[in-house]
Design a protein around this nucleic acid. Sequence first.
DNA 1: TCCCACTAGTTGTATTACAACTGTATTCAT
DNA 2: ATGAATACAGTTGTAATACAACTAGTGGGA
Lengths: 226, 226
Amino acid sequence: MDEKLHTSDQVYVYIKEKIHSQEWEVGMKIDSENKMATDLGISRVSVREAIEKLVALNVLRKKQGEGTFVNELSPSLYLNGLIPMILMDKDNLIDVLEFRKMVEVDSARLCAERCDDDDIKLMEESYGNMVKYQNDSENFYKADYNFHMAIAKGTKNSLIIKVNSIMTDLLMYHQKEIYQHLGPRGGLNEHAVILNAIKDRDVELAVLYMRRHIERTIKDIQNMKK
Amino acid sequence: MDEKLHTSDQVYVYIKEKIHSQEWEVGMKIDSENKMATDLGISRVSVREAIEKLVALNVLRKKQGEGTFVNELSPSLYLNGLIPMILMDKDNLIDVLEFRKMVEVDSARLCAERCDDDDIKLMEESYGNMVKYQNDSENFYKADYNFHMAIAKGTKNSLIIKVNSIMTDLLMYHQKEIYQHLGPRGGLNEHAVILNAIKDRDVELAVLYMRRHIERTIKDIQNMKK
DNA sequence: TCCCACTAGTTGTATTACAACTGTATTCAT
DNA sequence: ATGAATACAGTTGTAATACAACTAGTGGGA
């Protein structure tokens, strides 16, 4: 139970507290490395290491000669640079897909309950693009992505939105592969019925169609993997 | 356009390449900071900064006096990156609770379908501790935590397990005092029926009881906030 | 008014030194 | 010979100092 906290870890917590308490708000320049070092009575090295970690996590942003700033946190930025390192074996992929199913199905439910006209407009737009780009897998994929993100947005739950986007990024590599092999196919109609159910505020149908859609996707991927 | 790469960033790429090319495999000890510094003809500071970043991203793991090692990269570890982002965002507690409900309810479903005898043993153990420590809120909370973690474990999905623990950490960070104020109370019976449903492999009942349990918890927390 | 050099402040890198810790080899007492 | 204490070499952690690289702003001169 004796958690040994190194100096740099203490600074890490220190900065995190400052940001969390909104003393240092988004976009604001934080104390200089020298100031923190003297304030906390430690060396600049330790301060730098803590900052370096937070930069890696996209919480902070540094500019040489200028200072260090608090980032706004967008999940997509968050993952950049790491994706090439992911080596997902099949087991892990299934875990991700299963988890995605949970999130997406519940997203459909909440979205049907709460989404506003703007959200529906986004979904319709994305669906329109899917129709338009049936033979352009690159743009089709983008439209598909936007469709699901619009649903996530309709849940009005910030966590769901973030998790959704992370899941998508995680699956991106495989997804591209998939579209190249499978093409748009039956996906179009599945999206249409989901969209209609949400527009009708029919929660049960939205859930049902989304479940089928994801389950079909999962099946396709699993078949492809063989 | 011309990305200006600092020395530490070059080391960052250097290490990443070594790992990606499997020259440094999972679990292996990588070169010491001094060796890399002399090899690359740069200062140890720059090497450390790169390593620090990769540690923050859970790619590397350091042990003082021993060395630096390559971590396994599973999607669940990957989600660790979510924590600082969520903590620093001005998320509202409701979003977290709602998301937790989604995850926990589906966990109950999957657990009832898949858990083995060891998982059930863990749940029974935790439940036994909850009974035992009804008047010791500290230990009661631990037992409660273990009960829910055992269910997550029973899903056999690494992502669910990780997300579950993250949710718990998040709630603790925000509302450490909640559980002390609420005390054991009615939670005992709710856990009992969930446990029995899972043991009976009654998926529908497990889902139903878990949903009620979480919804009651959320209500309690919301009432407390007033 | 515009331009340019200067300056103070900040991050980036290097160097050196030592502290804290770990695993292994060595030594010493039994 | 054996086991325990010790010493040692290697590694990460922290500190102090110095200077390089860069930025925004200042102020003076044309």
